[in-house]
Design a protein around this nucleic acid. Structure first.
Length: 407
DNA sequence: CATCCACAGGAAGATCTGGTAG
DNA sequence: CTACCAGATCTTCCTGTGGATG
């Protein structure tokens, strides 16, 4: 701990603090980690394996449609089973099993989804510049040439259909009859209950050959999951009594979302660790909740288009809610003009509100006020103050606050 | 019990950016 | 280089609608 080499002292001290106190392996708490054991999902794993098993013989498994709320283990189970199938296939010398996992919320265009499917088959596609039809025909030719079976997992398919329609799904279900050699099996995952009803009947019957439903975890089950994962992630006795129970009960209240629970646990640990403590307390979990919310807000705001930010700001400045989109739009116009920007149309603001709603930062529910028309009631899901704080770091907006302070 | 409000939200397309193919 | 493509953002124009009220 000498005071020579000022820089390295800071580095060493920081590393010293980070290296030990709480975690053995925090990666196992990350949302994309697939554990070797999934508590309370054995039945689902067995069933999915049965359905996909024909793939090992090169036969096409039935298309599967999986429904369940967020954090009920749909993605984990599917990835788990596919990984195991691949391991099994290799160990028995049955050759490679081709599958593609695509999250349709992240890859939200037909083009990108097709690109991922081609990639999974070992083909190559530029990430932009071609027509979608061209990518689709490349997909088919790669399939045909190799004669392989591709299991295409489309996670959060409802986003694809909502944004682009069911054209792609329809065409994918048709591929099998168009090709002589290649085959495609679809695994659709969604958390939207009424998704199936919105589909074209042809697609519905084809995609829903087999259906599976994942029910939410209750608090006891969440506790098992957390305990299992915590034993891998944390040092023994790094968690004080009640931490796991508290995380489980928070997540159980939010419709049994295991991802939320694990996130909460990880962030709680990180908070305790940052402060050099050796034990995570319930208080740390409470602070983790706030921190997760803050991060969500910062992320959302960062990716929003300029007028999206203004709409959000208007809601925050109004104390977090509006009774109608008409009121909101008037206030928004004032703000935009005040900032020297040309306001966008009300139609566009309506779409922006839908986006904010989907991102979860706002709830925009359609209500009918009878004679007084139909509108959306908008409620901010986070603290207005927290939002305004984020905006005061945005150079295109923050000067408004500074100016109003000067005057 | 028909009317009619205040919008929702679909459809088509304009404009811009940033890319590919040949 | 030209011709073309998709995505993001936004506009214009539009049809549809639940339920309080007259």
């Amino acid at each position: 701990m000498g005071s020579r080499g000022i820089g390295s002292d800071i580095v060493f001290d920081t590393l010293e603090k980070l290296s030990s106190s709480i975690f053995i392996n925090r990666e196992v708490l990350r949302p994309d980690y697939i554990p070797d054991y999934l508590p309370h999902r054995q039945e689902e794993i067995r069933r999915l394996t049965e359905v996909l098993a024909p793939a090992l013989r090169g036969e096409r498994p039935s298309n599967i449609f999986i429904y369940g709320l967020t954090g009920t283990g749909k993605t984990a189970v599917v990835k788990y089973v596919l990984r195991k199938l691949q391991e099994y296939s290799r160990s028995k010398g049955l050759g490679s099993l081709y599958y593609a996992y695509v999250n349709c919320r992240q890859e939200d265009t037909t083009y990108r989804i097709l690109t991922d499917l081609v990639l999974a088959l070992g083909g190559r596609v530029p990430f932009t510049g071609l027509s979608t039809a061209e990518v689709f025909s490349r997909f088919k030719s790669v399939l045909e040439r190799s004669g392989n079976l591709l299991i295409a997992v489309l996670d959060e398919v409802d986003f694809l259909v909502k944004k682009r329609g069911d054209e792609l799904l329809y065409r994918l279900t048709r591929v099998n009859s168009e090709l002589k050699r290649g085959k495609v099996s679809l695994v659709g995952i969604t958390n939207d209950v009424r998704f199936m009803e919105t589909l074209d009947p042809r697609v519905r019957s084809s995609l829903g050959e087999i259906e599976m439903v994942f029910s939410p975890y209750n608090a006891d089950q969440l506790r098992d999951i957390l305990a299992e994962r915590a034993s891998l992630a944390f040092k023994p006795s790094a968690l004080s009594d009640g931490v796991i129970d508290y995380c489980a009960s928070v997540a159980a209240r939010e419709h049994g979302d295991a991802r939320r629970a694990l996130d909460l646990l990880r962030v709680s640990g990180e908070i305790a660790e940052r402060e050099g403590k050796e034990v995570v307390t319930v208080e740390d979990v409470r602070r983790a909740r706030d921190e997760i919310e803050r991060d969500m807000v910062v992320d959302v705001v960062k990716t929003l288009p300029y007028h999206g930010k203004l709409v959000l700001l208007v809601i925050a400045l109004a104390g977090g809610s509006f009774e109608s989109t008409g009121d909101l739009y008037m206030k928004y116009r004032e703000l935009a003009r005040g900032l020297g920007a040309e306001p966008v149309t009300q139609r566009r603001v309506s779409d922006i509100l839908s986006e904010l709603d989907m991102l979860g930062i706002v709830t925009a529910k359609v209500i009918n006020r009878g004679r007084y028309g139909k509108t959306r009631k908008v409620v901010l899901n986070v603290e207005p103050k927290a939002l305004i704080k984020v905006f005061s770091n945005d150079p295109r907006i923050s000067w408004v606050f500074k100016n109003s302070r000067d005057r």
